[in-house]
Design a protein around this nucleic acid. Sequence first.
DNA 1: CGGCTTCCTCGAAACGTTTCCAAGGATACG
DNA 2: CGTATCCTTGGAAACGTTTCGAGGAAGCCG
Lengths: 345, 345
Amino acid sequence: MSESRKAGKKPATIRDVAAAAGVSVGTVSRCLNAPATVRPQTLDKVRAAISRMEFRPDSRAQNMRRRNTMTVGFVVDDITNPLHAETFKAADTEMRAQGYSLYLVNTNGLANEEAAAIDMLQHGRADGVIMTLNNETDPRTRQRLIDLRIPSVLLDRDIPLEIDAVLTDHAAGLLQAAHYLIGLGHRRIALLTASVDIRPGRERVRGFVEAFARNGLPVPQDLIRARSLSVDFGLRETTILMQQAVPPTAIIAAGNRILVGVLKAVQQRGLRIPQDVSLISCDQTDLALLYPGPITLVDRDIREIGRTAAQLLLERLGRAATGPAQRIIVPTRLILGGSCAPIRA
Amino acid sequence: MSESRKAGKKPATIRDVAAAAGVSVGTVSRCLNAPATVRPQTLDKVRAAISRMEFRPDSRAQNMRRRNTMTVGFVVDDITNPLHAETFKAADTEMRAQGYSLYLVNTNGLANEEAAAIDMLQHGRADGVIMTLNNETDPRTRQRLIDLRIPSVLLDRDIPLEIDAVLTDHAAGLLQAAHYLIGLGHRRIALLTASVDIRPGRERVRGFVEAFARNGLPVPQDLIRARSLSVDFGLRETTILMQQAVPPTAIIAAGNRILVGVLKAVQQRGLRIPQDVSLISCDQTDLALLYPGPITLVDRDIREIGRTAAQLLLERLGRAATGPAQRIIVPTRLILGGSCAPIRA
DNA sequence: CGGCTTCCTCGAAACGTTTCCAAGGATACG
DNA sequence: CGTATCCTTGGAAACGTTTCGAGGAAGCCG
């Protein structure tokens, strides 16, 4: 009996239920969607038939008729990045509580995959989309966002369009981090971070530069390496930096993948932290919290980012998507670990 | 003009295109799905209309009519676990190449959320499902799997049903790990791993026990702690173990989250690895590869797991889902790092 | 030139649900 | 007792696509 369903005939439809209960399809539908409008006695009859036949409405037909899918796309370049995974989880929790499911689209950071994802999502697969795009300037991407016909929320990207966004105050974080190092006597501070083509890179550089300005110090332009968030980038740049004639005395690894690369390089070269070089990172990853000891880092509430993105989207999905775009900025704060030491004068 | 679409009227349907091109809806449909069967001249005309009106077929209607969704569910307890994220990514890559998108459902390990996820997925939201369930014995879950009407693949779970599965040879891995430690002179070796209610726990304990048996040694039953894969579990058990009168000389943290907990405890107590205690872990996480130095670990090819799961599912989705269930076992291997030292006799 | 293929297109019928309108019966009220 | 009102239900029309059978046009052969 328990095996019956598997090999059994096709699933019951609302018509089958209607026939079995001796009512019309409309009535069955109402039993599901507006039970209050149907006579209790009828309701019982129908419900009995429903459970007897193990009927469950077919989502495909519901999507078709209701013109929505209760699904939201989450577009990201790499879900193995703990930052993205955490954001996804928080957004998922929030959306799921409202009955939404999430498509996760992993684009590998490729512009054409991002475009394809957006394309596919907006033509009847999703009611909205939350995304971290890899390139803010690509005109094709921009046009796609303009043409987008479902509400969307951008994560940490700054595109001058009427689109909701959740941003991190990276500039403040980097200002604080660099200021802290300067206070410890560091002057040759290296900054490794994303390209200035995307907001995190831009803002971090801005905060970094500002820290020197506020302290009346020249900015070590040669030590600003803003090109990528990858592990390889962190590894390569650290190696290059540390074999310079006058290597930096401190490194800010602004990006959790960059940190992995930096630490690899540090190990390869047998450097000690903080004796040989001070280090500041971003975001609380396992590695940042545990590497020899906790690393001093610029923290932010990643769960709040995911939650907020979901809430913004839910607002748009709820009432008619009116009102100007909202931009919510999440603060950062410096958490002291043991990876920074004062400069020995 | 570029803004037109956004606020503009509703999207064009296949009927609009047909009217614009002066053909019937059936012809437009064939232009999309079987261009070879339509006269080139007509094809051009229709394609022109399609691009002029920016028509894209509505997935909801396609899903409805075709009775599929080109969507697959990926059910997992916690996507922030790098193991799961990596598996997802590999499966996603494979499935996406065949035109499928993935729903990611994060269940937090709760049996009822797992059940709800399966329920929802199989009623018209997904064509198949890949899943890591949290409990192999829960009868409700089991019944749900029996009743499942879409093909599915289980990850690292051992349920006596006709369901495809991708498994890891944890027993071999743990046999090798424990054997290695025994060879270094260790006898009091602790094993921290999942509950024996799930396959990874069972298999790891089995391999561990076997190693002692093969070496003609008594099994340190009091040091086998098989209860959870969580960070907290690793932290708590390590703390307890290490303050025993005769603490273990080696710990096998069999689970990447457990490792985080173990390292936390190690730091809190100021222990040195491997001088004070040897350590073996599982899976190549950032932390395992970089913590002071690389940790000796039981490795496996996680990408292959995701890829294989996707392939198994694709086979079932392709032809009629016939043939007996397949169980594919992925091997493990020990990678030596610097976290183990010989016992000083 | 008629008949037979072959090629292409048309149009309608699904797919399973929701929703709207009308109709029926019961109840209330004058 | 008749009429207005309310409550409940039935039935049909959508939603946008795919698919299938039928039919028209054109080409080929005898």
